[in-house]
Nucleic acid binder design. Structure first.
Lengths: 197, 197
DNA sequence: AACGGTAATTATCTTTTGTTAATTTTTCGA
DNA sequence: TCGAAAAATTAACAAAAGATAATTACCGTT
């Protein structure tokens, strides 16, 4: 079941683990493909899945009653995605997870994975590493809201995620930055007109 | 060395662990007391400590070159505090951690704690639980910046952390919410004047 | 190439925030 | 309890953002 490409893939994702550990995880994992526009996790889903994105791009958004959408998160190839409400709070997802591009996921059932992770010391520290990585990202984001203006947040985004910016419509980037699309458009104009600071 | 009060304290903090596990942690921990105003972690410190706050209140803030302070985090009794830069990024702290009240900490050296945590399956899942808890808080905070206006964030804060609000000067709460103290003062006036919504 | 729908920009106006400084209130130590 | 220092509020103005609507640009499909 494991071809050479998949073996090297697992070895690269789970650096520091030996082949037996990786096999323990592999037994739980499967591939899922999504077309651009497909919903991966619907609102209200209790979908306890954790997925590694091999290819593509997924956004999580909140849908207000009046139809407005607020993008909370973007994740792309090499990153993980899961329903935060399901994994962290064990409750139905308030958010919708949608593929913005054709996407390939390696998916594991989180409930089944947990005992395997917790019973293998190497895997449980791998688990902690992932959580630490997610925490680092989330805290960096909080920092940006406190320390930076919307314009500075946008400049930071295009500086640090230039590739992603080009793959995502501005209206999604706007709400990700905590501003409206109209306001982002004005910021873009300010930057291009006046000095690039 | 462990009196009855301390034993019940440890049992309450580390629910689900047996006394031997707790003893493993206890061997690494010690008490530290801070007076109101004391700096716990200075800027640039590489202080790899993780502390449980038994009493008191600590704020983490960023000090700009011009002297402006931006409060990033408040933690109080029952919560944990650590230098994020030191623990997560293994780099000197960009932030200052200061006690706002007389504070009592149970402190462990993080480097010494890690092998103990990782070698005990129950402790490593405890470690993951803590990380998950921190992640939940951090993500809730990102959500609030994206989904709520400054005024709504303030209302959320006084609704959910009423006790803490009264223990912290408004100027610290303002930057925690991503706004200026002047703006917070106006928000407070709007709320008290117009309907409380 | 033309069409239709979506995204982005622009315009206008209102509301909110930032900035700076003055004033009032509160706090806390002598 | 008094007085200085810090905090909070208020004022005045400039800058930015939100809301709504109109216009323009872009993109995929036929």
């Amino acid at each position: 079941m494991l071809n050479a490409e998949e073996i090297s893939f697992y070895l690269s994702v789970f650096k520091g683990l030996n082949p037996m550990d990786i096999y323990d995880i592999f037994k739980l994992a499967h591939t899922r493909k999504l077309a651009a526009g497909d919903i991966y996790i619907a609102e209200g889903a209790t979908h306890q899945k954790l997925a590694y994105i091999r290819k593509g791009l997924i956004r999580a958004y909140y849908l207000k009653e009046n139809g407005d959408e607020f993008t909370l998160l973007l994740q792309w190839e090499g990153k993980f995605i899961a329903s935060h409400d399901a994994i962290i709070h064990q409750r139905p997802s308030r958010f919708i997870y949608q593929a913005l591009e054709d996407t390939v996921l390696m998916e594991v059932d989180y409930e089944k994975a947990l005992p395997v992770l917790n019973n293998n010391p190497r895997l449980s520290s791998t688990q902690a590493s992932f959580l630490r990585g997610m925490l680092a990202e989330s805290m960096a984001r909080v920092e940006s809201f406190i320390l930076l203006s919307p314009e500075e947040r946008y400049l930071q985004l295009i500086r640090e995620k230039a590739d992603i910016v080009n793959r995502v419509p501005d209206k999604y980037l706007a709400t990700l930055l905590g501003i409206t699309p109209v306001s982002l458009s004005r910021i873009r104009k300010r930057i291009s007109t006046q000095g690039k600071r």
